[in-house]
Design a protein around this nucleic acid. Structure first.
Lengths: 333, 333
DNA sequence: CTGTTAGCGCTTTCAT
DNA sequence: ATGAAAGCGCTAACAG
């Protein structure tokens, strides 16, 4: 059986209260007492039972990070930053995957946000509307990551997707491209990511005097395979675009692969820009231009926002906008 | 305040015992009572307090997964499988990162394995020797993932790294390559991964009548950048290898990138084989040949082993060997 | 400065 | 089939 406070108290000849005080670093303790307790603590190799402590305090120090899929590089990199920062402020992170499935997302929220030991939830939703979320959130603090899916009364952290996409297009235009296609997602209301990126795409096109309702290759998800398929189809048509703005780096990777297979030179014949700037993109052939969101910034901002809300559940909610950067590499150089 | 069992009991006019029974799906309850309790449960929207339950039962249903870095694709994919499978058996997963730093790994083990709410730990160590682990593990069940770093009395799940590497080399030999170089890690005792893969490399070379102590390009880690640097240096030497066996796919990606930059054709001039078969490798140019460990199998085996050990802490420990597969693609076709 | 004690919410033994 | 009550290990309110 594990060593408890009482065991230590007995050994040291003091009350549990005193031991607890020593363990928690209270100030006003007689040096002699403290020393005696310390000795007992070490001799018995006492470890606090965190579950009991949590029950008592009503807080666990655990936050949950809900992502579509942890094996998707962007989310892996984001998770890395979240775990990193959370650990540095004494918080541990539990990870759950929604698979991007709205049903599963709802399930997770109803069970997690209400019931479990999780102090709060960082939620990177794909398919769920903000309104759905607001209703489901229950009492547990919830911070939204990524796109704000609707005007809600929830804290939210993300980058300006519209502006980022606009800049990507502007960059392609500046490089002399005129037949620019967008690639990825549905563009519909359910998929806020592509909705905003498509919107930014259109703004960029319009600003350049190009057709804002131009080519949009939709994909069922943001994975490499979907882009390969979409590009393969694209290349069978008559008129080819001279640039591709992909709504994720994985899509861009799939596109690059397919272009390579079909013998289309990048960027000479078709320039490619991605979104997310995952690590692999720096090493692809050709190296991929991409929008780089400040992932560490997102993580820190989100964790801080969550912690703040723990202390003040009723406080006003915020939209935190984190910077991004357009990184130009070979694929659009 | 949250709804407790007592609230429900009062509302339904029964004892907490009865409510608890209903919540936990006990059998022998009068239908009328059950109905009454159910109604109260729903009306009050009762959610069990998992912390209290855990304190009582001495189990949390949480396991911890310790990885070097979650943003490294292989670990991301592995984590995905672990979370996936654990969720399916009602276990939640907490993720922590060691950064591959032996000091941090020790810290994590001493704090986690002994103190926290974690029922057990899945540990994918990089720098820590098995002996270190055995001493540190404390009372908490621990399953080792990846290479067995030493003969220990711990459960361990992994693939046969030596045999896998041997097969990779055999494949290159079979394709007519004779000047095969190994790339990655230190090959030293502290880095079991590269130790075993190097050993398998040597076996493969010897079997083919080639110099088993041939070229070994060491790297400080398994990331893309390290391979780029190593290959850049390699290409400045006089005699070039005609094949590269990289100890991770990320290394291979970095190598491919550098070879591309230097205008070396793959596989014509140099064939490349990786290890891990991460998703990105299927889409690289050229597509990368690789050793594919059965990640889902590793995850399932490990979680099962951990759960088994929870029920029987004293039982005999096992080495679980999971299958792998050599996937041949363009880079060594 | 330190001891005593109530309870956090739940499961479970002991009764009935 | 159900109630009463102990207690998991801890913190903090209340004494002194």
């Amino acid at each position: 059986m594990a060593v408890t406070l009482r065991d230590v108290a007995e050994k040291a000849g003091v009350s549990v209260r005193t031991v607890s005080n020593v363990v928690n670093g209270f100030q006003h303790i007689a040096p002699a007492t403290r020393a005696r307790v310390q000795a007992a603590l070490e001799e018995l190799n006492y470890r606090p039972n965190l579950v009991a402590r949590s029950l008592r305090q009503g807080r666990t120090g655990i936050i949950m990070l809900v992502l579509p899929e942890i094996n998707v590089s962007y989310f892996g990199e984001l998770a890395h930053e979240v775990v990193d920062y959370a650990t540095s402020v004494g918080i541990t992170v539990q990870i759950d995957e929604s698979g991007g499935d709205p049903k599963r997302e709802k399930e997770l929220l109803t069970s997690l946000a209400q019931a479990s030991w999780v102090d709060g939830v960082l939620f990177s939703s794909l398919g769920l509307r903000g309104v759905d979320l607001a209703g489901l959130a229950g009492s547990r603090p919830l911070v939204l990551l990524g796109e704000r899916t609707a005007r809600t009364s929830l804290d939210h952290v993300g980058i300006d997707n519209v502006e980022a996409s606009r800049q990507a297009v502007a960059h392609l235009v500046e490089r002399g491209r005129t037949r620019i296609a967008a690639l990825g997602g549905s563009g519909g209301a359910r998929d806020a990511t592509s909705k905003y990126r498509w919107k930014g795409f259109q703004q960029g096109m319009r600003a350049a005097g190009l057709d804002p309702d131009g080519l949009y290759l939709r994909t069922p998800d943001y994975r490499r395979g979907s882009a390969s398929a979409a590009v393969k189809e694209l290349l069978q048509w008559g008129e080819r675009p001279d640039a591709l703005f992909c709504f994720s780096d994985e899509l861009a990777a799939g596109a690059l692969r397919e272009l390579y297979e079909q013998g289309v030179r990048v960027p000479d014949e078709i320039a490619v820009v991605g979104f997310d700037d995952i690590e692999a993109s720096r090493y692809s052939t050709p190296a991929l231009s991409s929008i780089r969101p400040d992932k560490a910034g997102i993580a820190k901002t989100a964790v801080d926002a969550l912690l703040r809300r723990l202390d003040d559940p009723q406080g006003e909610t915020h939209d935190y906008e984190v910077p991004f950067e357009l990184i130009i590499r070979e694929s659009s150089g």
